[in-house]
């Protein structure tokens, strides 16, 4: 958490994502029309929704889509899905400097303090911070905190990239990411075959109907080559497969390298890391193109 103090806005309920996307579209249109200058700072504000409830049927469908056991414990990635609209509501604020649409998801890191039960009421807080330059534009961290009562049970930090949006590097003191090293594929241990409907099916269980995931047409309309898999879908599968029966604290991270085009397949490697025992290193890549889609790790603590 950054040290700056933020104004807190409490929302009555978790906003619906379609509405948020409409707002994002309208905002983008306004910005295009008005060519209004963009403030190069994130608003010092956090949005809050209290008492978020887990819908058991929706949870079951999510779990079954991933092939994980439909336990009463909420999958770590599903907490992100639940809380994400709150983060979105921050990103579609008129004073948020970057355009939401077309923003690229670079990474996620989650610390979960304990098992979260589906019956627990979750209080969610979201804010954006750490706006900084990236080789291809500007990146920003979106932070989500989830509490049960006074306990902080889940913290997620997602990094997004707005391509082509340039900050004054001198002014913000950000650094440019160094070039990626050449990719060497590890020994594969699995293969994910993702059908053309993967994005739609994940959208149906997660509520994230971002058009870039739904169909080639909607994706092309937003400038993509074709539909791509949800980052959180890949993350959720990664976490579930690495630790199929989490019982305590969980810490994981995923870095997205190149999008997974749909339909397609992702060759995967799950490897127990060295002597630390509890960490599983994961790589997902394209065997055909020999480039990575994501790398990550999951640590059950």
């Amino acid at each position: 958490m950054s040290g700056t103090s933020r104004e807190e806005v409490t929302l009555p309920d978790v906003p619906a994502l379609p509405g948020l996307y409409r707002r994002a579209l309208a905002l983008a249109a306004r910005r295009t029309m008005r060519r209004a200058p963009v403030a190069l700072a994130v608003p010092a504000v956090q949005h809050r929704v209290d008492g978020v409830r887990v819908d058991l049927l929706a949870l079951t469908r999510f779990q079954q889509l991933l092939g994980s056991a439909a336990r009463d414990a909420v999958p770590s990635a599903y907490v992100h899905t639940l809380a994400f609209p709150v983060a979105m509501s921050v990103l579609v604020r008129p004073d948020f400097p970057l355009p939401l649409l077309g923003m690229v998801h670079l990474s996620n890191e989650v610390r979960q303090a304990r098992r979260i039960d589906a019956s627990e009421a979750l209080d969610v807080v979201a804010w954006a911070e750490h706006l900084r330059p990236h080789a291809a534009g500007t990146q920003v961290d979106v932070v989500l905190e989830v509490r049960v009562g006074a306990d902080l049970v889940w913290t997620g930090r997602s990094v997004y990239l707005a391509r082509g949006v340039r900050l004054d590097t001198a002014g913000t003191g950000g650094r440019r990411d160094e070039e990626r090293p050449a990719f060497t594929a590890p020994t594969p241990t699995g293969l994910w075959r993702l059908g053309a409907d993967t994005g739609r099916r994940y959208a149906a269980v997660s509520g994230d109907w971002n058009p870039i995931h739904l169909s080639p047409l909607t994706a092309k309309a937003l400038g993509m080559k074709t539909a791509i898999a949800h980052g959180m879908y890949l993350a959720a599968r990664m976490v579930d497969q690495a630790v199929p029966a989490p019982s305590g604290p969980l810490h994981w991270r995923i870095d997205f390298a190149t999008p997974v085009l749909l339909p397609g397949s992702v060759t995967t490697s799950f490897a127990r890391a060295g002597d630390t025992g509890h960490r599983t290193d994961v790589v997902g890549w394209s065997a055909k193109r020999r480039h990575p889609h994501f790398t990550g790790w999951v640590r059950a603590e």
């Binding site: 092939g67 020994t187 594969p188 241990t189 699995g190 293969l191 994910w192 075959r193 397949s265």
Partner: peptide, 16 residues
């Protein structure tokens, strides 16, 4: 004949 958890066919597994 794919393994549900890995998605690899038995032959691909054995190939490894």
């Amino acid at each position: 004949t794919g393994e549900p958890r890995t998605g690899l066919s038995m032959g691909e597994h054995q190939a490894l």
